[in-house]
Design a protein around this nucleic acid. Structure first.
Lengths: 235, 235
DNA sequence: ATCAGAGAATTGTTCAACAATCCTCATGTC
DNA sequence: GACATGAGGATTGTTGAACAATTCTCTGAT
């Protein structure tokens, strides 16, 4: 059966070389910019300015805007243009409400999870610890995102994966309201390690409790940051 | 405070008159066609044919295709065109996995839910019972969708609402693999009534158990229908 | 200071064109 | 007869320009 095995190995690589449209590549660039905080929340994105800067036509750029609009990173106002999303306090509580539902369900279903999926959780924990050792706070944040993406992956559910990916991207926008967003994730690295070890021991319910505690703490911290920011600059 | 109250009332109506783009209206038309089964799963949608039929340009039509692609009703293959999504058996289990996570979480959070949200659940139950009395099976299916949308609404979460709306639209596609999709929902009308009454009595945990039982039964029924269909027409 | 309105700037949509890619089918080979 | 190989046609991907519709800005009048 060497032929079949070889084909399987090839088809596993298929995603690597999947051609993407210009609009998708433009969306990738803009997404990275928005997530990195290079564009301020609420800022308007001019079609002509960005189109000429990136060397794509308005039509193509508008397709990219639509893509990011569906990820809630940009908001499209009819006849007014597209703006970088400006998350509110309510968005934070909503994001955490959905994260709780999806990630906890994924973690609780981890009993019959693929060992590779569990390994990815461990890899993300290690990645965060390494980044913390280098004092690379941005990388710690990225690793923390990978951790939660890996937790969601325990469900083995494509739709859960995609939904959580979108939620986490949106969350990175939220972090920019914090005074020191870089350090937000640092205290949670140890907790992630703890969750992973419990998961590996098969104590999924205990792991879920720790994860729920993380959600509560992180949400409260973000909401407080919002209340502080809004007191300084009311709407 | 009459001014403030008046403004509140107006802003509640804002959604009604929100202008929509041509692409969105085109997407509405196509969505209705796909959901109603007017286009077979796997069928290719030609840009020129549909564009000229609807009297819109290719660019606008492509925007509409993108919208429906994000709802997973259409799949876009690069350089090949867009096709009506063709759900598989795995899609069914994945859809129910995510529905379980979101709808059960919403129902369990119904303790502090808005009384209006609870009332909408009751209204959907009534709608289904009325349709069943008329033997209007398609309307029963629609009412069942409204029921689950209303259950999701108990969370008071915009993101949950949107996610469930997408899942349910996708599910309507799945129903078309059944031999008699019209009658699928009928047995569940009574169960929906039971869930609603438990919810109204505040026995949310008992209601959640019934809802979980519904998911199990409906998922199994659909998976079996798939296995039967695939035996007749293997991939 | 507020309001109205003219003009500029921007978005919404269409059209036409061309490049890139895929599909079909006839042809030739084994 | 089964299968590979191209040639040609059809379809999608992307661009640029054009015009309509809407919003924004700034001036001037009250």
């Amino acid at each position: 059966m060497t032929t079949s095995e070889g084909l399987d190995r090839l088809s596993a690589l298929r995603g690597t070389l999947e051609r993407s449209s210009t609009a998708e590549r433009v969306a990738d660039v803009l997404r990275a910019q928005v997530i990195a905080g290079a564009m301020a929340p609420g800022e308007r994105l001019s079609e002509e300015a960005i189109g000429s800067a990136l060397g794509v036509s308005r039509n193509t750029l508008r397709e990219a805007f639509r893509l990011l609009g569906h990820e809630r990173l940009l908001v499209h106002e009819f006849n007014r243009g597209v703006f970088v999303a400006k998350p509110t306090r309510d968005d934070v509580t909503d994001l955490y409400l959905v994260r709780r539902a999806l990630e906890l369900a994924a973690l609780r279903a981890a009993g019959g999870a693929d060992p590779e999926a569990v390994a990815r959780v461990g890899a993300a924990v290690q990645e965060a610890e390494d980044a913390a050792a280098r004092a690379d706070w941005w990388a710690v944040g990225t690793a923390n995102m990978h951790f939660h993406q890996a937790v969601a992956g325990l469900a083995g559910s494509p739709r859960t994966d995609e939904a959580v990916r979108r939620l986490l991207a949106e969350l990175r926008l939220v972090f920019h309201v914090m005074a020191a967003p870089e350090e937000f994730h640092v205290p949670y690295v140890a907790l992630n390690r703890e969750i992973y070890e419990l998961l590996r021991e098969g104590r999924t319910e205990a792991a879920a409790e720790r994860l729920a505690a993380y959600f509560d703490a992180a949400e409260r911290q973000l909401v407080e940051a919002f209340d502080g920011a809004e007191r300084h600059a009311p709407a």
